[in-house]
């Protein structure tokens, strides 16, 4: 449906915006390496079913997300490493990994290796942006391009919510993927503050600056 496709396009756009920023400005300043590393873990643990993906659409996106995220990690860890300030990126990711691991082991859809990793990736994605938002809070402001990246990334999961409602209404099975929905709502809520500042400042041509 339209919400789902728009969400995935927004996700893809966010990655292109981030890559554009890093390559064009030859700098990854303002970007949390920890959040980016968490996203790599998210893609790898979620797409373990890559060889059995029935839909070519999903298959292509999975390849795109894993490969582009590997490239982002390479750029941040190798090519533009000096532009990355670890002193600003101090969020304790152990808590996020622990949170996702506990929920994944306690409430997977089924007790299979793939399902536990899938649930882990869903919970981890829901909170993976926290190191980035924490960094933003420490610096108090962000480049416009970084704000656009975060807006596109947040919009992706927000658009999945109307997609789930649409699917629930239109599909005869009325199936709800509880883990994905609860984690997806949590993920969107974490962005709400950012969305508000983006709307009140960046969309009106001002600099992204925290009050």
């Amino acid at each position: 449906n339209l919400f789902r496709v728009a969400g995935d396009m927004s996700h893809l756009a966010s990655i292109f915006i981030l890559l554009h920023k890093i390559v064009q400005l030859k700098s990854c300043s303002g970007i949390s390496f920890k959040s980016q590393l968490l996203y790599l873990i998210v893609y790898i643990t979620r797409y373990l079913d890559l060889p059995w993906t029935p839909s070519p659409y999903n298959f292509i996106f999975k390849i795109l997300f894993i490969s582009s995220q590997l490239y982002i990690i390479y750029l941040m860890a190798r090519a533009y490493r000096p532009t990355n300030d670890p002193n600003l990126d101090t969020f304790r990711v152990e808590y996020l990994l622990g949170f996702a691991a506990v929920l994944a082991v306690l409430f997977p859809v089924r007790y299979t290796v793939l399902e536990i990793f899938w649930a882990f990736s869903i919970w981890l994605e829901s909170v993976a942006i926290l190191p980035q938002l924490f960094m933003l809070q420490r610096t108090g402001e962000a480049e416009a391009i970084t704000a656009h990246y975060l807006f596109a990334l947040g919009t992706y999961r927000a658009l999945y919510i109307p997609n789930w409602i649409y699917r629930y209404v239109t599909e005869p099975t009325h199936k709800i993927d509880t883990i994905a929905v609860v984690a997806g709502v949590l993920q969107t809520v974490l962005y709400s503050d950012f969305f508000w500042i983006y709307y009140t400042k960046v969309m009106k041509g001002e600099k992204f600056k925290l009050p």
Partner: peptide
């Protein structure tokens, strides 16, 4: 070890 809950979203 394959799960089969059929997650069809990204």
């Amino acid at each position: 070890w394959r799960g089969d809950a059929g997650h069809d979203e990204l």
